[in-house]
Design a protein around this nucleic acid. Structure first.
Lengths: 226, 226
DNA sequence: GACAGAACGATAGTATTGCTATCGATTAAG
DNA sequence: CTTAATCGATAGCAATACTATCGTTCTGTC
């Protein structure tokens, strides 16, 4: 698994000017970029600070990414690509549709606890960024254009896969796509709430996220259509 | 109803330096602020532009709000206060718990279609801002501090009310708070998806949002506990 | 109708940000 | 050996996010 991940996580959409995975500097931009965004938050994070951190010039970073927004899109895309791959892995060879759906939901909604030694990116930091900053990646005036460019492909794909798992269990469900995207996005939001606005969740919500979403999906999926 | 709203929608939390509802300039800041944020999006919106729009000086606006982030928090707070009030109204005098829960969900998740002539704020613009920008109000490094200040009170209250309605129908539900906040926040997110990333939702999702959430909640609420 | 105090508009100024351009030096590829 | 790519460094610019100051007007009060 670990080896496979290393090989397979690729961000294919051209959100970059120059492929950061292809060069040493590019990889350091990603690695330290993830650490800095996690540490400072997106608003306080600047290419200037990242450059000092890397001992390089601001302009060098601009050769890879147009601006920090694009870098964020790239990082979030990487995150969802990784989760998508993990999803495929976690659901492989499970014959029973219901069991596979349950595993899929758990795979997607489980918090990341492992630093992940197989990648130069810190997976836990990446998870924290996805939780706290991913809304900023798409909630802008530029969404429609970026969407047309295919910037959110990996997020869409993981939602779509979950939708397919839902449909296999319940082919006549009226809202499989909404249900799927609600689980994928909702698991991030609920994690944020658990960390920062705990009155919006139950106690120990952090560790019971998956349980909540599994129950949520299965109760809709089991409810007879009127 | 319309008269009542005018009287009752108040943002009590001190996110402002000087109460904008108390003066003519303050009200114009809110009114044009809403219009400009809606038009430009939060990133392109600046106090400078708002000042020109209002024919006043930037510094005058800074007398009311520390910065545009605070203005956003205020506006979003106003929005949820308004919805909270609407919720109370829509669920008043309904004796049956299940019927009241269904009405509560519809009240909260229904898109705003009415400009709302009873307020100087454009309700539709406000709704669009709540859909597109509200995540930016709380997803910052400052959440915890702002949360302690009580900045998100109205959002918390509406989630809490929905939670209570859920518990009256299903006192032993294991995740009433998560379910409630998932509905409140999810209805905004799903609306955003419907507008900008439609493959994440069903066709006509915009008009079927409430239907989806009513079904979602009622199926969990009806599912027997194991 | 004089006076104190708020509210406002206007101007100025500063540090930071976000970005573009240019230019050698180093390295890698043909 | 030459050419192109890559990088680090510096410079510079327009916009942003404030802060400070100050005179004017408008308010209510004695």
């Amino acid at each position: 698994m670990q080896r496979l991940m290393q090989v397979n996580v690729q961000v294919t959409e051209p959100v970059y000017l120059k492929d950061p995975q292809a060069t040493e500097l590019g990889r350091r931009i990603l690695e330290q970029g993830v650490r800095l965004i996690d540490e400072l938050g997106l608003e306080a994070f600047t290419f200037g600070k990242l450059a000092t951190e890397l001992g390089t010039a601001e302009s060098s970073i601009y050769r890879y990414f147009e601006n920090k927004h694009r870098l964020l899109i790239y990082i979030i895309g990487w995150y969802w690509s990784w989760r998508e791959y993990k999803l495929a892995f976690d659901t492989a060879n499970i014959a029973d549709n219901r069991e596979r759906l349950a595993r899929a939901i758990r795979s997607i909604t489980e918090p990341v606890t492992d630093r992940g030694s197989f990648s130069y990116l810190d997976l836990r930091a990446l998870y924290r960024i996805a939780v706290s900053e991913s809304a900023k990646a798409y909630m802008t005036k530029g969404v429609d254009a970026e969407h047309r460019e295919g910037c959110f492909g990996s997020f869409k794909r993981i939602c779509d896969r979950l939708k397919e798992h839902i449909l296999l269990v319940r082919p006549d469900h009226p809202f499989p796509a909404m249900l799927a995207s609600n689980v994928v996005d909702g698991s991030m939001i609920q994690r944020f709430f658990a960390d920062h606005l705990p009155s919006l969740t139950e106690k120990q919500a952090r560790t019971r996220l998956s349980e909540f979403f599994v129950e949520l999906v299965f109760s809709t999926v089991n409810t007879p259509r009127s």
